[in-house]
Amino acid sequence: MKNKLIFLIIISGCSFSCITPKYYVLKYSQIQSLDLDKSLVNYIPLEDELLRKSVVLDSSYSLLIHKKYMKLENYVKKTEESGVYSSDLLMAQTLSKITQQNYSGALISLERINDRRFSLLKSLLIIDLNYENERMAGVPDFKKYLLKYQDLIDTHSDNLVLKRIVSLRLRFLRYNY
């Protein structure tokens, strides 16, 4: 019985660690130094300034980059229970759900954010999450999402990091990953 339990724990542990997120959260300053042309990863950019000013986001970011997804989920829950309720927490919740590939849940959390600091990130993630939700139901329309991303980079034409990130997103769209 004991052996069976250990076996089950090992199997479930393996299966959990095998869920690799499609989206990786990274600071703007770190994305700028990456060679994105050879990358096949979708990045969610977080402004360095935002992380410096928000304890919740900074803690969540640390957990995310160390791939402590379960700990992040618990951290978000505990912070919510403690009565701290803010856009930062909602963003942390969104990111946590994205890493768990709970895209519809992430979209619900994201849509509750009304903070201007997150307006660009929100616009980007709404397109991503709608794409993921549509992808679960079938093959999403490439042209539709191409136009949405085009509008986004045109609205923020000075943001070169965004332009590079969106180019990567498009690769995923094209290959329907």
């Binding site: 490439f142 042209k143 191409l146 991303y149 085009q150 980079i153 045109d154 034409s157 332009k163 969106v166 180019s167 498009l170 094209r174």
Partner: peptide, 13 residues
């Protein structure tokens, strides 16, 4: 088959 298209990244003038 696959859809053809790309992102226009040239600056708008």
């Amino acid at each position: 088959n696959s859809s053809i298209g790309y992102l226009h990244d040239s600056p708008k003038t």
